[in-house]
Amino acid sequence: MDVRFAVNVRPKPGILDPQGRAVEGSFGHLGISSVSDVRVGRRIELTVTAADEPAARAVVDRLAEELLSNPLIEAYDIEVLGGSSSLVGPRA
């Protein structure tokens, strides 16, 4: 079976995120001052072919741990995607 996943990678708590700070700094230009604590991460979507969902998930776990995130500075979580992903948009 094919299972599509999303891996959401984000800076760990306490890790400096200059990118988030720069994005937050731009909000003033839009006249918005009510937003704080912006942190910027990364989302990776992928399809795994495996016997079942746990087997597919084991592959994603390994990729997330060894390649997609750096455990020193980043945390991640894994979502199983239903119909909507970057491959197939939500039906209008």
Binding site: I15, L16, P18, Q19, R21, A22, N70, L72, I73
Partner: peptide, 16 residues
């Protein structure tokens, strides 16, 4: 550092 042959990590410059 990514290969774990050296300690630590190199983050985006603080000044962006």
């Amino acid at each position: 550092t990514e290969a774990h042959l050296l300690p630590g990590a190199l983050l985006r410059n603080r000044g962006v």
